[in-house]
Design a protein around this nucleic acid. Structure first.
Length: 946
RNA sequence: GCGCCUGUGGCGAAAUUGGUAGACGCGCCAGACUUAGGAUCUGGUAAUGCGAAUUGUGCAGGUUCGAGUCCUGUCAGGCGCACCA
């Protein structure tokens, strides 16, 4: 009987669906295990062979864990809202709801062919009202919360109000956009509107006016992780800075917890490091400077407090409010012109030129350590959004300050013994401090750093600054709040209405606020959100939901929030929703959450390192603060699968002809390489007839062959339509079967590595499955070969070696080596003509996670009525692995020192010779007590001494 | 500039974690069966050499009886952050 994978795989796909094999429920009798893949954007292009890589890896692990007795949750869904889906809809001129539905169906069809053990019963789609109900709910909770720095937790905003009423800001340590100070009386005297404004400063979801990344071409603002080098990640369009009123999430309040949490989760070092960089914790000092001939003061932030004696000027960010305050009348015009000029430069232009520009404000600052007055400048190399938006410039020890000083002829004072600052600044943090204070200057204060190392000097200055109230020790983070508004149609609507300009939440009972179906959903370059067209929807919502407070100004043009939420909103808590995806009362039932807790194994690409994986952790921490998620961290272990690159093929056309020359002969002609569809190339050999039919212009193509074949050239490139190197998994499944595809994708190499797809190697995996099949069935007749009780010691040794290897490898996701082990084992069993049922049962069980279809079929043929998914994972019996051994005594200087157990494949003579020849070993071992010696042919490999 | 990761045959990669380097697969070579082979099976395949043998894990040192593995330096490639004070 032959291995007919097409029928066999179809049969088992159907049976799994009928018998609901992969449906799971909470089961307190079993330990849980939660496996999760980052859910896909259902893009219009469908899946290529790169997409299932992570799904296969996690599927293997999920099936393995199930066989080890765990109750395994392995769900799947779609991240259907957001820019990618909408851009695709715009490009194809269809409504995003239509294209998304279509794309999802296509994805599902493709996924189903590969035999995943997803529990589709729990599917979520971020664009489904039953799902985004809970996205909106979480947003409302964030609006109703502030972050208490003392408790390190989100708290209801009502508690903050209560405190304000009793003691104003005195005892408040809350994360805020600005530091506010007022008394209880001040608070009570504020109008409701003023109070709302104050609270907005503390809310975790807040409406803030700020500089944002505005992308005119996409017609929306973008988060920092969606912009790289001044261009949008999606589409690569220019991004400019623009001041806009936006909903934001106070992610920055969680910066320290996001950093600390990294120490307790099992993620790769590189992705943790990426997140640490992104959070950007920096310990430094804030120092107050007073302004000469004025009572004004301002604060700067520095990590190099040791350089206080080398400050020769100050610099303000052009956007800083200080600029206006500190500019003198004579300089006002020049400063204004400069600030205007900077505004017009895009982020990209600012980054591109490293030339320093700037203008003097006319004011001077007094250095609290030297008493010297130094000029205050404005320059765009200082960023408004970091620290205090003002710096002290120490050109001798900061390359940017140095460049600025050189451009504008400002003095440079070196502070490190022996450093040379004539050509460039000395930025290193190593050396002995000098000139602090300078010997030729009368000390202004009783404080010296001379003779200390930089590290000591920083500590000493910090100490001095805080005890003398010149400033304070301060930790800054680069992590900024997430901008949460998008001027787009295809996203979650905000559950927000405006009452006389004041934002208010639609009551929880009215959620979800459904996205209206509109005809005009295109974004606009001016930033008018498409939802503005849905006025009927808006007023219907108001009438339905806002009953008790119906004094909404009827003249309001549009009473609802027009923006929608960004792509990351829906993906931030989806792992919780899978636990209890049908729950109408809560995001997830508390009992259910306490059972599944958090994701044990999360698989996905590194591209989400500073986006989804930060937002999701933030979102979960917020929910955790209220007990809605029982774990502090959502993803305990993270495995990043590498990208699968494309392997393009080329044909070589002789210039000016329609004649193509084979790869090996191309150097003899003047040729142009042309991409050719990889689907008409097999093992780099071109299917000439298919090529002629591929494009009309090649219909009459001629070929110069080598050895009767046309060989194509190749290159590794990104898998994309334009390179004609996209390999569709459907084709592989049709030609080789899903099991072969699964095996081959895993056999390609370690999952965390990027690697090119190379269809050439797939035959090896295909051959392996046929060989396996041939162990069970005689190739030429329909005789089933397996019998009971025929196991030989060799059979048992082979299978136990496999059990040991696969069990070890699967735990560390080393699937490629597992598959090698399978190939070796099947080779051995074939040679041994093994027919034993017990051995075969173990073999099939081990194979089930990797190649579930063939495993099920063979399992059934072995006489089992139940699914192989519920078979018990075999345990290695090490007694079969022991080598027979012989003992050899080894003596040095006529005295027996130790004995060696010799493996059978080493002759006693060889071993003796090797040991005694090892002069160095003899000398080394002299007088030492030998505990253990391991011997392999021709060499002592391990001598353990006491 | 700062930080992280990776360098092993023609290719993808293994190496019991400091102990026979190159398992397994692809490709290639030879053979068998074939009208045929882009099917199947068998054997070979790091380099140099007829051979014995020698050299081999980016490069240069070091530790060790022993280093692909540990340490120092260096080069190359990839990734992240970046006028972040």
């Amino acid at each position: 009987m032959e291995y007919k994978f097409i029928d066999l795989e179809k049969k088992w796909r159907q049976r799994w669906a009928e018998q609901k094999t992969y449906q799971v429920e909470v089961d307190y009798n079993k330990p849980k295990y939660y496996v999760l893949n980052m859910f896909p954007y259902p893009s219009g292009a469908g899946l290529h062979v790169g997409h299932p890589l992570g799904y296969i890896a996690s599927d293997i692990y999920a099936r393995y864990k199930r066989m080890k007795g765990f109750n395994v949750l392995n769900p799947m869904g779609y991240d259907a809202y957001g820019l990618p889906a909408e851009q695709y809809a715009i490009q194809t001129g269809q409504h995003p709801a239509v294209t998304t539905e279509k794309n999802i169906n296509r994805y599902r069809e493709q996924l189903d062919k590969i035999g995943f053990c997803f529990d589709w019963n729990r599917e979520v789609r971020t664009c489904d009202p039953d799902y985004y109900h809970w996205t909106q709910w979480a947003f409302e909770k964030m609006f109703d919360s502030y972050y208490d720095n003392d408790q390190q937790s989100a708290r209801p905003i009502s508690e903050l109000v209560a405190t304000f009423e009793v003691s104003g800001t005195t005892n408040v340590h809350a994360a805020g956009t600005q530091e506010l100070t007022f008394s209880a009386d001040d608070w009570k005297q504020m109008t409701e509107q003023e109070q709302n404004q104050v609270l907005m400063n503390y809310r975790i979801a807040y409406l803030g006016e700020m500089m944002v990344n505005w992308c005119p071409k996409l017609g929306t603002v973008l988060a920092n992780d969606e912009v790289v080098e001044g261009l949008s990640v999606r589409g690569g369009y220019p991004v400019v800075q623009k001041k806009m009123k936006q909903w934001c999430l106070r992610v920055s309040a969680y910066a320290q917890r996001l950093l600390d949490g990294l120490d307790h989760i099992d993620w790769s070092d590189s992705i943790k490091e990426t997140q640490r960089n992104w959070i950007g914790r920096s310990e430094g000092t804030e120092v107050e400077f007073s302004v000469k001939d004025s009572d004004k003061t301002f604060t700067i932030f520095t990590t190099r407090a040791d350089t206080m004696f080398g400050v020769t000027f100050m610099v303000l960010a052009p956007e800083s409010e200080l600029v206006e305050q500190l500019t003198t009348a004579d300089q006002a015009e020049a400063v204004k012109a400069y600030v205007e000029k900077t505004k017009k430069r895009t982020e990209r232009e600012r980054i591109a030129s490293s030339e320093k520009t700037g203008v003097f404000t006319g004011s001077y600052a007094i250095n609290p350590f030297t008493g010297e007055a130094v000029p205050i400048w404005v320059s765009d190399y200082v960023l408004a959004g970091y620290g205090t938006g003002a710096i002290m410039a120490v050109p001798a020890h900061d390359s940017r300050d140095y460049a600025f000083a050189k451009t504008f002829g400002l003095p440079i004072i070196p502070l490190i013994e022996g450093c040379d600052v004539s050509e460039e600044s000395f930025d290193a943090k190593e050396g002995i401090v000098t000139n602090s204070p300078r010997a030729d200057v009368k000390p202004y204060i009783d404080f010296s750093l001379n003779g200390l190392t930089i590290k000591e000097a920083i500590a000493a200055t910090k100490e001095y600054v805080s005890t003398h109230h010149l400033g304070r020790i301060k930790v800054n983070y680069r992590l900024r709040d997430a901008i949460f508004s998008r001027q787009r149609y295809w996203g979650e609507p905000f559950p927000v209405y405006y009452d006389h300009g004041q934002p208010r939440m639609i009551s929880e009972e009215c959620l979800p606020l459904e996205l209206p179906a509109v005809d005009k959903f295109l974004p606009t370059e001016t930033g008018e959100p498409p939802l503005g067209n849905a006025t009927k929807w808006a007023w219907d919502t108001i009438n339905k939901c806002i009953t008790e407070n119906s004094n909404i100004d009827e003249k309001t043009v549009f009473p609802l929030e027009l923006n929608t939420m960004p792509g990351f909103a829906g993906s931030s808590a989806y792992y919780l929703r899978y636990m209890d995806s049908k729950n109408k009362q809560a995001l997830v039932d508390q009992k259910v959450d306490e059972y599944w807790r958090s994701v044990d194994l999360y698989i996905g690409g590194t591209e989400h390192a500073t986006g989804h994986l930060i937002y999701s952790r933030f979102w979960n921490k917020f929910l955790h603060d209220y007990g809605w998620s029982c774990e502090e961290e959502p993803f305990q272990k993270l495995v990043n699968q590498g990208m699968i690159q494309g392997r393009s093929n080329f044909v070589y056309r002789i210039q000016g002809t329609n004649c193509f020359v084979s790869y090996g002969l191309k150097d003899q002609y003047d040729v142009t390489p042309i991409h050719v569809d990889v689907n008409i190339v097999s093992n780099d050999q071109l299917d000439v007839d298919a090529f002629k039919k591929w494009r009309p212009e090649y219909q009459d193509a001629e070929f110069i062959l080598e050895n009767g074949k046309y060989i194509c050239g190749w290159a590794i490139e990104k898998m994309s339509k334009s390179m004609y190197n996209v390999v569709n998994p459907d084709h592989i499944v049709e030609k080789y079967g899903a099991d072969t595809l699964r095996l081959y994708e895993m056999f390609l190499g370690p999952i965390n590595l990027s690697k090119p797809w190379d269809s050439n190697g797939i035959d090896g995996c295909s051959r392996f499955l046929r060989k396996l099949w041939n162990l069970f069935w005689n190739r030429n007749s329909d005789t089933f070969l397996i019998q009971e009780g025929t196991a030989t010691p060799d059979n048992l040794k082979s299978i136990n070696k496999l059990i040991q290897k696969v069990t070890q490898d699967i735990e560390v996701f080393s699937y490629n080596t597992s598959i090698s082990a399978f190939m070796i084992c099947v080779g051995e069993l074939t040679q041994q003509k093994c027919t034993d049922k017990g051995v075969m049962e173990q073999l099939v069980t081990l194979l089930a996670p990797f190649a579930p279809h063939i495993a099920e079929e063979l399992w059934e043929q072995l006489g089992h009525k139940t699914t192989v998914c519920d078979a018990t994972w075999p345990v290695c019996d090490e007694s079969y692995l022991k080598e027979d051994s012989e003992t050899l005594s080894v003596s040095f200087n006529g005295k027996t020192r130790f004995t060696i157990d010799l493996p059978t494949d080493i002759s006693k003579e060889d071993a003796q010779k090797t040991v005694l020849d090892a002069e160095a070993s003899k000398k080394y071992l002299e007088g030492k007590q030998i505990v253990k010696v391991i011997v392999v042919p021709h060499r002592i490999i391990n001598i353990v001494i006491k």
